[in-house]
Design a protein around this nucleic acid. Structure first.
Length: 245
DNA sequence: GCAAAGATTTGCT
DNA sequence: GCAAATCTTTGCC
């Protein structure tokens, strides 16, 4: 029997930067929920943008302070979810990489929706509605013209940002520790179809880490499919490995 | 115990 | 392009 596809876990036995490049194009899958506001359909998206955070030496990583309560799962086996709250408002999904004992993870920055787009949009709006209004939002609400024209993000950009990925897929910190490589998990990773053309991969510096010293601030540890409309921001340069054209 | 800052998103100027 | 919203985590006294 010739199996054209290696085991799902095999991808994670490589160094984090190689996993980052290879995981572009993989599917993020969430099963349909039994009830509630997120019921109705399963959600599937194509991972189009990730960032690598590697080791305690990486001054942009949550592991820079060593092992703590929050980042403990980063020190565990690969393929697990690490979800944290940033700025007191937004959940962000990471995929743990490297063998147990080595703290590293990939931040999922953007996903291109494939299935369950209506559910993603509803979940995002539900989370936005639960959020208290900013002063700017309150001011806009007083204007009838603005109030009657609610913002509707393009479907392709419904998960175009790390906080938006979690909002669209209904992911929060309770998902931390979940095995994303287990086919039985409600949220999981699946490889792309074997006949799908591998995407180009562009790289650039990581976003939102100005607090980190060099060289960490400028390392090209952000990876994205430059062809995808779901990428959160333009990428700077093409990666050397990508095929021409 | 307390103070500071953050792997973001949003709407207005 | 800017500033606000929000609360957990971390470092330090």
């Amino acid at each position: 029997v010739s199996s054209a596809r290696p085991p799902v876990g095999a991808l994670f036995e490589r160094p984090t930067l190689e996993v980052a490049r290879a995981i572009i194009g993989w599917r993020l899958v969430r099963d349909a929920e039994g009830g509630g506001s997120e019921a109705g359909a399963r959600r599937v998206g194509r991972i189009v943008e990730v960032e690598a955070y590697i080791g305690e030496d990486d001054l942009a990583s949550h592991a820079r302070f060593g092992r703590t309560t929050r980042n403990a799962v980063m020190y565990g086996p690969p393929g697990r979810a690490y979800v944290y709250l940033v700025y007191g408002m937004h959940d962000c999904l990471n995929i743990v990489t490297e063998a147990a004992g080595a703290p590293a993870a990939l931040l999922v920055r953007a996903v291109e929706p494939l299935e369950g787009i209506a559910v993603m949009t509803a979940a995002r709006e539900a989370r936005a509605a639960a959020r208290p209004r900013t002063r700017a939002t309150a001011a806009a609400t007083r204007r009838p013209a603005e109030r009657d024209r609610p913002r509707q993000p393009l479907a392709a950009r419904v998960a175009s940002g790390p906080g938006l990925v979690c909002a669209a897929f209904g992911i929060d910190r309770r998902f931390t520790g979940l095995d994303l490589l287990d086919a039985r998990s409600v949220l999981r990773l699946e490889p792309p179809p074997v006949d799908e053309r591998p995407p180009d991969v562009a790289t650039g510096p990581r976003i939102g880490i100005a607090y980190a010293d060099e060289p960490w601030r400028s390392l090209p540890w952000r990876f994205a499919d430059p062809q995808s409309p779901a990428v959160s921001r333009p990428t700077l340069r093409a990666a050397p490995v990508s095929s021409a054209g």
